[in-house]
Computed example of a mutant assay.
Amino acid sequence: MIKNKAKNISILVFGKNNFIATLPDQIRYTTTFSVEVIDNLNQAMSRIQMTPPDIIFVQASLDGSMKLCSWLKKQTKLSWIYCILFEDRLQQLTDRNKYGWQRELEMSAAALKQGADAYIWYLIEEKTDHTLAELTANHGLILAQLTVGLRKAQKYQDLIRTNDILSAIALADSLTELNNRRALARHLPRQIKTARTQKTSLSLIILDIDHFKKVNDTHGHLVGDRVLQLLCQRLQHNLRSQDTPFRYGGEEFVILLANTTDDEALSVARRLNRLVSDEPFALSNKLTINITISLGTACLQAEDDDQGESLLYRADQCLLQAKTAGRNRVINSNYLSSNVSRLKAVSS
């Protein structure tokens, strides 16, 4: 019996009905994993690309079988798929019987070189009426190779889960549990591409805590860290479903606002500004701290680069302007642009 601890293991069989009928019952009638049968090369390739199986059985006598093995070997992103080639071609079986083990080794090596991970010989036996032939094979060998394939699939799934965990750790800020700057560098270009493809708006907010150094100098860095955590919790609880916050560095944060216009971004920023300034942060029964934040907003423009550097720059300039103007306020790029234009008009 095959013991399969992996979840969602799938087998794609590239073969005809007479081939399927000879497979062990543990494969044909299993509920442990899914089995799909295809006998067309183009359909098989399309299926593998769309939904890659974990294991592939290939009937060598079927048109396109060796091409499928060779193609699969060239797909570096699919290298984890375990391909088992079942040799049922009459000429190869005849040569094997005629020339012995040396010829068998040569043909096995050639098949493995073409892309198969395992090579199983099928025998042709005549029925009693000497008119029909049926395919037979060592079921124990088939099940043994299947077990190898299942182990490989399990290891691949474990590797994917491990990589997902490591990626999540690498893209998360350990103090605030928000996405970090590295995550923003990945996420922002994707958001820009989506916005331009779907012709929707995209805005962002850059904010930081006013006079945060004074908090650290007065109360210590542990209190400062706790203030950052409480601020992030308050922001997260008051963001919309399409808003994604990031810790940009130190006491500075970025919030991506999907499907949000410049005016809507300004409204979101003003609301967050009030939520922070209107209610002090209670760190303990004896310590309550009042903090404020300054915010800059900007909306994606046609001339912005695909990586989002110019968009971030405009928002950052607005944040600097908000701090220069007295802190605890919001400046957006339209306001900043109109002021620059007005100053240029006055000076001229």
Rank of each mutant, 00 (worst) to 15 (best):
S79D: 09
P53C: 08
A109E: 15
I84Q: 13
Q102P: 00
L132P: 00
L85F: 12
Y99R: 09
N97E: 15
P53N: 06
Q102N: 13
Q26G: 07
D54T: 04
D95V: 01
Y82D: 05
I124N: 13
I55Q: 07
F57P: 03
A111S: 09
Y119F: 09
T51R: 11
I84A: 12
R28N: 06
L72V: 02
E106A: 12
M50W: 05
I120C: 10
Q49C: 07
E106Q: 14
K73W: 01
D25S: 15
Q102T: 14
K113H: 07
Y99D: 12
Y119T: 01
Q75F: 02
T94H: 11
L68Y: 01
E125R: 11
Y29M: 09
E125M: 05
P24A: 04
W101P: 07
L78G: 05
A133E: 14
Q75V: 06
N97K: 15
Q26C: 08
L123N: 14
E36Y: 07
I27D: 03
L62A: 03
C69M: 10
P52E: 08
S34M: 04
S79R: 12
H130T: 05
D88C: 02
D25I: 15
E106R: 11
Q102R: 13
V58N: 02
T51C: 08
I56A: 02
T94N: 10
F57I: 02
T32N: 13
K74Q: 15
L93Y: 02
S70Y: 12
S70K: 14
S65L: 07
T76N: 07
T51V: 13
